[in-house]
């Protein structure tokens, strides 16, 4: 059966040569950009040849990068979540507030994680159960979560206890802990997406939800699961950021949704769902670190970095759209 389909499809369209398959992939583009970025940055400053410097720089965005990995799964399934950065801020504020009110640290962490789960539930309820477009729903929750964080923290910053500060100074075999967590999460999610049934089902849902339903895939359950996962991972990332910064304000990672979406898009995830890889987002996260620290080393204003991020996002979607349009037929 499968043999006949294979020969039929070969009659219809000759398969592309293997170099073509490897080269015309968004991840390859990301990887090449990463190499160019490294070369360019090391010309700007000799610091860039120092692995430790790059690793230390990565800890500044490691939390967002971890969230972007999960966001990649959500985008592949055909949804999007713009509220993850606000979720990080609100979870971190709730965590800091609970422990400042005198609760033991582990309980505060659990409360923070549960808050993230609740936020994921709200997103899932609105977009999946109520079938509202997730892109608008999560704009609403983006404002709502950030606003609640502002209610809790006001304009003050809430300090976290000394013992909890400094996740970025903990080293595992010479590598900062946040980077290790990022790599481990990337490997786990990459294996789930690439080798498991659920992974294939996520692609299937994103490619054609109708067809997925007819194939017996419980699309709603998987999407709800992804929103919940994103909620709890965002909360964990928010608490990690609290540990790195030593205090929490309501404007923690303000505007971070842009960078998260950018990481997914730069990594070649297709905005309309169905395509994308964890490897792509993984590489894109490193690329962004190289770009932003490269600009810092070159003494460019932070505002110029904002401009460059915006341009990169637009170029990234144009490029991935172009590549997918080419490879579709």
């Amino acid at each position: 059966m499968s043999v006949t389909t294979d020969s039929q499809s070969q009659e219809l369209a000759p398969s592309r040569p293997s170099w073509h398959v490897v080269l015309v992939r968004p991840e390859t583009m990301t990887f090449l950009l990463l190499v160019f970025g490294l070369i360019g940055a090391s010309l700007l400053s000799p610091f860039f040849l120092d692995v430790n410097y790059i690793l230390r720089s990565f800890t500044l965005t490691a939390e967002m990068s971890i969230v972007a990995l999960v966001l990649t799964l959500v985008v592949i399934s055909g949804e999007i979540d713009l509220s993850a950065a606000s979720n990080m801020a609100l979870s971190a504020c709730i965590f800091a507030w609970v422990q400042a009110a005198g609760a033991p640290l582990p309980i505060a962490v659990v409360v923070g994680l549960l808050a993230g789960l609740a936020m994921g539930t709200l997103n899932a309820f609105m977009s999946i159960r109520m079938q509202l477009p997730s892109i608008i729903v999560t704009i609403g929750t983006l404002i709502f979560f950030r606003g609640l964080a502002q209610v809790i923290a006001g304009d003050r910053s809430i300090r976290v206890p000394e013992s909890f500060i400094g996740i970025n100074t903990v080293m595992v075999a010479g590598v900062p802990l946040p980077v290790v967590i990022f790599v481990v999460v990337a490997i786990i999610l990459g294996l789930v997406l690439g080798t498991t049934v659920i992974g294939r089902q996520i692609y299937q849902i994103g490619t054609n939800q109708e067809a997925a339903l007819h194939a017996g895939i419980d699309a709603k359950r998987i999407k709800v699961g992804l929103f919940l996962l994103l909620g709890i991972v965002s909360a964990a990332a928010g608490i990690m950021a609290a540990s790195r910064l030593g205090s929490v304000r309501y404007d923690l990672v303000l505007g971070g949704e842009l960078q998260m979406v950018l990481m997914a898009m730069l990594g070649g995830t297709y905005i309309f769902g169905g395509r994308g890889t964890i490897l792509g987002t993984f590489l894109a996260a490193w690329l962004l670190v190289i770009v932003s620290t490269g600009m810092t080393v070159a003494n460019l204003l932070p505002a110029i970095q904002l401009t460059v991020l915006g341009i990169l996002l637009i170029v990234a979607i144009i490029a991935t759209n172009f590549i997918y349009a080419r490879t579709q037929r």
Binding site: Q305, L306, L313, I314
Partner: peptide, 19 residues
């Protein structure tokens, strides 16, 4: 391109240009 992603990009781009 989907307008929401384009304007998310230009949200940042135009703000940067203002600076």
């Amino acid at each position: 391109l989907p307008s929401i992603i384009v304007t998310l990009g230009t949200l940042s781009l135009y703000r940067g240009l203002t600076f």
